[in-house]
Amino acid sequence: MDIGLILNQSITQGLGVQAVIFALAAIGLNVHFGYTGLLNFGQAAFLAVAAYGLGVTVATLGFSLWVGLIVGVLAAVVLALILGIPTLRLRADYLAIVTIATAEIVRLVVRSVTLRDIFGGSDGINRFADEFYALNPFSSGLALGPLTFSRNDLFVVVVGWLLVLLSCLIVFLAMRSPWGRVLKGIREDEEAVRSLGKNVYSYKMQALVVGGVLGCLGGFVFAISSQSVQPDNYGTDLTFFAWAAMILGGAARVFGPVLGSILFWFLLVFINVTLTEAVRVGYITFIDGTQVGQIQFWILGLTLMLLMIFRPQGILGDKRELAFDVK
């Protein structure tokens, strides 16, 4: 058992690109669910349309990366509008069904053979972020104790965490504004807000757009960090991971999703690498390498269940503030 390797991997990945991606996705979800009470189970779709918007614009159409980023954000806004129009007037569980279905529609469309020339089928799109890496100000990678990043990774991670901080600031400012108070009001009692003359439908739609755009930043980080977009990376599991991160950290708290992502990713990698090492060294013989990877999904499922049952407010949250614990 290489304890150093285990700690090294867990800490590096707990603060690495994956944690950034899930933090951004979960911050967006937090605007949807934590503040407005919308059950969005299609967050992966927002990341996917942003990543594909970027990839298609740059790799297929040949525009610059910066145009691609704008296209990605616009795609997320359009997706939010398309999702919101039929469902925001309906009960919460319909939104859950429609969002999860939409995420699957997006994934099936981009991986289809028919549209292979545009989206690249199941292989996706590759190499479109050279412009981003050309801006890298770091001359070397980072090796700080257990924390090790290559030169390019370091750039992505630093930009990623700056985006996370910026998103947190936006959420913080938005939620203490009158606009944010209306959102929380909708979460607590939609009828009451409506009786005060607010257009609840419009506010929900705005929340869906804002959360979708924040989440789509995660899609950019995902796409740029690996220089590739692949349809199967944007399956329902990505959404569920973001949910687990948000609930673990604490919904309706500015830093809840961030803390949740770091902790959850650290935990997953820690268990994963520990088990892999234990299998390699021979302490554990009844499972093999690929089965270790599946155990992290057991943890995901159990985390979601146990948190919702025993501590729906997560680490930072306030139980009284969460709509889903008020029947």
Binding site: L39, F41, D237, F240, I295, F297, G301, M305, L306, I309
Partner: peptide
Amino acid sequence: PLRKKGVSLIAMLVVSIGLGILLRYIYLF
């Protein structure tokens, strides 16, 4: 037990998603 505990329907929905993931990957395992 969840109904007895008064867990809300939305929380139960998320619990069912968690249970689904857990069962799915137990099957795969």
